[in-house]
């Protein structure tokens, strides 16, 4: 089947620094694909490039490659070639994104309900009253307790977990085809992370949106991903189904990475602490 989103030979530079170097992968409908890597691997820049947000505010430049996106109408467009005006109609609409810091990704001066309403009024041309109804519906979908009360609250009046639910509600409010989640649970406590990961899995089934999740956490990858793209130093190192990557990593880098991942339960039956059995990897 034809992919929903196809990144082909993407190269992104910041001045003389190459942040993403010839990256290719496909994202299919209903699939959850994790792009995993350590800091500086280029995973976040890849995500921002799909949204065409690397050029704004920073000196990033998409040097080469295509990002083919199959629009809801069936027409395939190259996002790299889109003008800013056209990208604006896609962002938050057919492709939406959530960020790592739920504390700072909401505007502190507006109530959270207004901010979600803004998105639907912008893309779907709803009136304020209809937008408010939609917000309420979305808050219920992401299981925000007492949604009527929460809508009028300001970001600082909510916990990190609730704020991330608001961000997810905003991202899903226009029924996107692709949801890009950049380290969505990294700033959250582990019990809240578990709730958000559970919610994201549940929502994928309900909404059918494909999910591209950017993370450094192999535990999160194992929890949600169907397929995995491993990145290191701007390049794709390995790409395959999650089970294969975890059980039979082919590349030395992936092997080294997995060897240094602490796994809960790996110490069962041992009385003394034990060091990691690291795999040497020459970069």
């Amino acid at each position: 089947m034809e992919p929903l989103l196809s990144v082909r030979d993407l190269t992104v530079t910041f001045g003389s620094f190459t942040a993403v170097d010839g990256v290719s992968f496909d994202l299919h409908e209903g699939q959850t694909l994790a792009v995993v890597g350590e800091s500086g691997s280029g995973k976040s820049v890849t995500a921002l490039s799909i949204m065409r947000l690397v050029e704004l505010g920073t000196r990033g430049k998409i040097e080469n490659g295509e990002i083919l996106f199959r629009q809801p109408g069936g027409e395939v467009i190259d996002l790299v070639q889109q003008r800013e005006d056209d990208m604006r109609k896609i962002r938050g609409n057919a492709i939406s994104m959530i960020f790592q810091e739920p504390l700072t990704s909401l505007n502190p001066v507006y109530p959270v309900g207004d901010q979600v309403a803004e998105a639907v009024m912008l893309h779907q041309g709803l009136e304020k009253a209809e937008a408010a109804e939609r917000v309420l519906e979305m808050f219920r979908l992401v299981r925000i307790p007492e949604p009527e009360k929460r809508m009028v609250q300001y970001p600082h009046e909510m916990s990190g977990g609730m704020r991330q639910r608001v961000m997810i509600a905003m991202a899903l409010s226009c029924d996107p085809k692709v949801l890009i989640a950049d380290e969505p649970t990294t700033a959250l406590d582990v019990t809240i992370q578990a709730q958000i990961l559970g919610l994201m899995r549940d929502l994928r089934e309900q909404t059918g949106a494909a999910v591209l999740i950017i993370t450094h956490d192999m535990g999160v990858v194992a929890e949600v991903a169907d397929d995995v793209v491993v990145m290191n130093r701007a390049k794709v190192v390995e790409h395959g189904p999650a089970v294969d990557i975890f059980e039979n990593p082919a590349e030395p880098y992936t092997q080294a990475l997995l060897a240094s991942v602490p796994r809960l339960g790996s110490m069962q039956g041992r009385s003394e602490p034990a060091p990691f059995e690291l795999v040497e990897y020459d970069s």
């Binding site: 582990v190 992370q193 578990a194 990961l197 559970g198 192999m218 194992a222 991903a225 796994r263 809960l264």
Partner: peptide
């Protein structure tokens, strides 16, 4: 709540 780095050990939450 700890995510386990093993896709076969995935749990319903």
């Amino acid at each position: 709540a700890v995510p386990i780095a093993d896709p076969r050990a995935r749990r319903d939450r």
